[in-house]
């Protein structure tokens, strides 16, 4: 895949990730799980797709653009740092987990979901200069098992459906 195609694909993926972030705001997840701040993490499917299809560097670009744009649209500067902290840690964990031969896309997605929550808690600990925020981490981790499995299943079916599409340069062969 040439550079122009890759950049265009990145732009489309960023738009898709933003649309998914918006869509998951419409799902009243807090009615099922009464924990504030719990999200499905649908945008993580896009990060995984970019990671597998284009490689870690393009996935990073999509992630940073998505975080910047969503904080402009909804969050604000504080939200930017939180989504970046979660997103970067999640991407790093997924890039590592992807190399593990004994993990499927489910395992990769689970690592991403758990590390996303870990990153957000670490950011909260830094902003509030407090350790006790971490008492919230166990709840988030348990929820991340379910959301990680869900996004893993979504990514698995996306990859299955697109298995005939030739893989990009720099992505997994």
């Amino acid at each position: 895949m040439n550079r122009t195609r890759a950049v265009t694909l990145c732009a489309m993926l960023t738009a898709l990730a933003l649309a998914l972030s918006f869509a998951e705001r419409l799902i009243p997840l807090e009615a099922v799980v009464p924990l504030p701040g719990v999200k499905l993490g649908l945008a993580n499917i896009v990060t995984m797709f970019a990671l597998y299809q284009l490689g870690a560097r393009y996935a990073l670009a999509v992630l940073v653009c998505r975080c910047a744009l969503s904080s402009l649209l909804w969050g604000g500067p504080t939200a930017l740092w939180f989504s970046l902290a979660g997103g970067l840690l999640a991407l790093g964990a997924m890039a590592l987990a992807k190399r593990a031969k004994f993990l499927s896309v489910y395992g990769v997605s689970l690592c991403g979901a758990a590390c996303h929550n870990l990153g957000q808690i670490l950011a909260a600990m830094a902003v509030l200069r407090s350790v006790s925020v971490a008492s919230y981490l166990p709840f988030l981790l348990v929820v991340s098992v379910f959301t990680g499995l869900l996004t893993g299943a979504a990514a698995s079916s996306v990859f299955r459906a697109l298995s005939h599409v030739p893989r990009a340069e720099g992505g997994e062969k």
């Binding site: 992807k98 593990a100 031969k101 004994f102 993990l103 499927s104 896309v105 489910y106 395992g107 990769v108 698995s156 990859f159 299955r160």
Partner: peptide, 8 residues
């Protein structure tokens, strides 16, 4: 990676 759930 595999697309199906594994022991790992």
């Amino acid at each position: 990676n595999d697309l199906s759930f594994r022991r790992g």
